[in-house]
Design a protein around this nucleic acid. Structure first.
Length: 357
RNA sequence: CCGGGGGUCGCAUAGUGGUCAAUUGCUCGGGGCUGUAAACCCCGCGGGACUAAUCCCUACGUAGGUUCGAAUCCUACCCCCCGGA
């Protein structure tokens, strides 16, 4: 049966935790949740080709509005008729709005300023001044021709004081309203999905306030905004979101984090951890973390993970990968990235398999 | 053989009387990374006293010497490099 784009259906639940298995309908196919989307921030999953992504078995990837807008720039993407054709990927792409960059560039590094109607800042590459508004963030994402868009939000530090926290919520709500209006009015949004982002840092009451304001506007799914520092807040926030809507844990995390958040009822994840750590020589295995640069692997002829079916583990030894990292050969980073992503894909598959009630 | 320049903690470098167990880079060892300013960043790297402040020992080619004090100055020797026979 054809379901409308944006439909999220829960197809099974876990009988011990709040975990659920679901399906998100996008114009580029169904995403089976809980799902993990690795971060191809600059329209590339560093070191990998889209053929690699296919082989790894990923369902979707994330790309970032802020970064792609700076390099290569919107005009280039337009020339290619959208980001999918640019990077030659035909599965769903979720675009982050740039809200996180607002947070790190403005709130933390003071490289810009948040105004009521947008963010003024200088980018970290050219130093050019930009003014990002919620309208623009939506327009850019529509031009990228993304499948799942995120509203421009304004996160704050998990330990922000009440005043900053309230401002973060009021900006996020106001901008979410503008984002939704801009989105709905635009013809290009008809086959796309837009999600809101809940702020409130570590204050449960403010999490609730943020959610209720956003729910008033109405989104089919919500991201957890900010940094998930305390589990009770993260769980509380998941509980705020109705069962029928998708819960997106933004930017976290490690395999342990994901398992924990899936048990709380989160459905979608993205994180730089598997890819960045792979590039830095930290591999995830069925036996735990493995720092392949450690001297103890110099003569180790076993595969990185005997239970893994990726290109690295079915071909090369720990000793060889250790060598590749020691000589800083890019192939080592590529193989490690393939491995970690394959590890995540299988981890998500296994979790979905276990949720069957 | 003559003239000149050198020998410093694995390698390469800095240091030319006390502030030197000695600079910096690399190697090496370890750690970190959570909506990617990240092929990046941090720590350690003569030995020992439990970790730290601190203290002790052994150390700047070798052996002596000058000096309160030497990687630094002097002498001899050993090695290396450059130029000339």
């Amino acid at each position: 049966m054809e379901m409308p784009i944006g439909t999220f259906e829960v197809v099974a639940k876990d009988n011990k935790t709040k975990a659920r298995r679901g399906r998100l309908y996008t114009r580029r196919g169904i995403i089976e949740t809980p799902a993990f989307a690795p971060d191809a921030t600059y329209a590339v999953l560093k070191h990998l080709s889209t053929h690699d992504l296919e082989k790894i078995g990923l369902q979707m990837i994330l790309t970032n509005t802020y970064h792609v807008n700076i390099r290569p720039g919107l005009e280039v993407i337009k020339e290619h008729n959208g980001i999918h054709n640019f990077l030659k990927y035909d599965k769903p792409i979720l675009t982050d709005s740039g809200g996180w960059q607002v947070f790190s560039l403005v709130y933390e590094s003071k490289m810009g300023k948040v105004l009521d109607n947008g963010v003024k800042f200088r980018d970290h590459i050219s130093g050019d001044e930009h003014f990002l508004t919620p309208q623009k963030a939506i327009d850019i994402q529509l031009t990228l021709d993304s499948d799942i868009l995120m509203v421009l939000d304004y996160p704050v530090s998990p330990n922000a004081n009440k005043k900053d926290n309230l401002y973060s919520i009021s900006r996020t709500t106001a901008w979410a309203k503008i984002s939704k209006d801009t989105f709905v009015k635009d013809e290009r949004s008809r086959d796309k999905i837009l999600y809101g982002i809940i702020q409130g840092a570590n204050d449960k009451d403010l999490r609730k306030k943020s959610f209720e304001e956003l729910e008033q506007i109405g989104f089919g799914g919500y991201g957890f905004g900010g940094v998930p520092l305390y589990d009770d807040v993260v769980e509380y926030t998941a509980d705020l979101i109705p069962d029928s809507k998708l819960r997106y844990m933004m930017g976290s995390g490690t395999p342990d984090d994901i398992k924990k958040y899936v048990a709380m009822g989160y459905d979608l994840f993205d994180c730089v951890v598997p890819t960045r750590n792979a590039r830095h020589g930290l591999l995830y295995t069925s036996e735990g973390e493995m720092r392949i640069t450690n001297a103890k692997f110099k003569f180790d002829k076993k595969p990185v993970d005997e239970k893994c079916d990726c290109e690295l583990c079915t071909t090369y030894s720990r000793s060889y990968l250790h060598h590749l990292f020691k000589i800083k050969e890019p192939l080592g980073r590529r193989l490690a990235t393939i491995h970690n992503l394959r590890f995540y894909v299988k981890m998500m598959e296994e979790m979905r398999k276990l949720i069957n009630h």
